[in-house]
Simulated scan of single mutants.
Amino acid sequence: MQPRIVIADDHPLFRGALAHAVARVWPGAAVFEASSAAEARAALQAGGAECLLLDLHMADSSGLSVLMDLRQDYPALPIVIVSASEEPRVAAAAAQLGAAGFIPKSASLDAIREGLAAVQGGDAWFAEGHAGEDDDLARIASLTPAQRRILAGIRQGLLNKQIAYELSISEATVKAHITAILRKLGVGSRTQAVLVAAKLDVDQPVAEPAQA
């Protein structure tokens, strides 16, 4: 069966470079390009994808939350993060949250192909020396999808009644979820929860397309 690879990145030049690398690692693969997380989801819902190459910054997504959500929905799918960020903490966080690999956008095409080949063979591929696991990330990963949506509302500064309206649930349900969120994160206030959740953020440096 023809392999299907999904490339999710909002920069056409990077998608082109990644498609070139994919063609070398998965000859004859059907490549589906997406410029947003929503388009990536649509491609994945069609079924049969062998790998997702995922940028952390697109119009409808930013940071590691999109990785957590996709891992929740597609636990068996290898997801390779392709990011302009080269911070060791970001690569470490991606690994802890279930990514199969982390490839900086500054990497050469040879390095990108090397990373993709490792993932194709069932191995993880991360730069050497990335940091160890973070207890706060483990706590965030323990939240349910509903709790993560409510935490996102808290981070936006929304009141309980506003979160309830946005999610079409009762304010009492929101309060119950917030109590559970604070307990799981090991914090005592909404402000502390926001500070913990900030570890999902990833700065967006400027990167140039990969060079051969």
Score class of each variant (00 low, 15 high):
residue 1 M to K: 10
residue 2 Q to C: 04
residue 4 R to I: 12
residue 5 I to Y: 04
residue 6 V to P: 10
residue 9 D to W: 03
residue 9 D to I: 04
residue 10 D to A: 00
residue 13 L to G: 03
residue 16 G to N: 05
residue 22 V to K: 07
residue 22 V to L: 02
residue 31 V to G: 11
residue 31 V to Q: 08
residue 36 S to K: 02
residue 44 L to M: 00
residue 47 G to L: 11
residue 47 G to K: 08
residue 49 A to F: 08
residue 49 A to K: 13
residue 52 L to A: 08
residue 59 A to D: 13
residue 60 D to G: 00
residue 62 S to T: 09
residue 62 S to P: 05
residue 66 V to G: 05
residue 69 D to G: 00
residue 70 L to R: 00
residue 70 L to I: 03
residue 74 Y to E: 09
residue 78 P to D: 09
residue 78 P to K: 06
residue 79 I to Q: 00
residue 83 S to I: 07
residue 91 A to T: 03
residue 95 A to K: 15
residue 96 Q to L: 15
residue 97 L to W: 01
residue 97 L to S: 00
residue 98 G to T: 08
residue 99 A to C: 07
residue 100 A to W: 01
residue 101 G to W: 00
residue 102 F to L: 03
residue 103 I to D: 05
residue 103 I to F: 09
residue 105 K to M: 05
residue 107 A to N: 03
residue 109 L to S: 08
residue 109 L to N: 05
residue 110 D to M: 12
residue 110 D to P: 08
residue 113 R to G: 05
residue 117 A to T: 10
residue 117 A to L: 10
residue 120 Q to G: 05
residue 121 G to Y: 07
residue 123 D to Y: 11
residue 125 W to R: 09
residue 126 F to T: 03
residue 126 F to Q: 02
residue 128 E to G: 15
residue 129 G to T: 04
residue 129 G to F: 02
residue 130 H to D: 09
residue 132 G to Q: 12
residue 133 E to W: 11
residue 133 E to N: 13
residue 139 R to D: 12
residue 142 S to A: 14
residue 145 P to A: 07
residue 148 R to E: 13
residue 149 R to G: 02
residue 149 R to D: 12
residue 150 I to F: 00
residue 152 A to T: 12
residue 152 A to I: 06
residue 157 G to N: 06
residue 157 G to I: 04
residue 158 L to P: 09
residue 158 L to A: 14
residue 159 L to C: 06
residue 160 N to S: 11
residue 161 K to R: 15
residue 164 A to K: 02
residue 165 Y to E: 15
residue 166 E to L: 13
residue 169 I to E: 02
residue 169 I to D: 03
residue 172 A to L: 00
residue 173 T to H: 15
residue 175 K to M: 05
residue 178 I to C: 13
residue 178 I to R: 15
residue 180 A to G: 10
residue 182 L to V: 06
residue 185 L to N: 12
residue 186 G to I: 03
residue 187 V to K: 11
residue 192 Q to Y: 07
residue 193 A to H: 03
residue 194 V to A: 15
residue 198 A to T: 00
residue 198 A to H: 08
residue 201 D to E: 13
residue 201 D to S: 06
residue 204 Q to E: 14
residue 204 Q to C: 14
residue 211 Q to P: 06
residue 212 A to C: 03
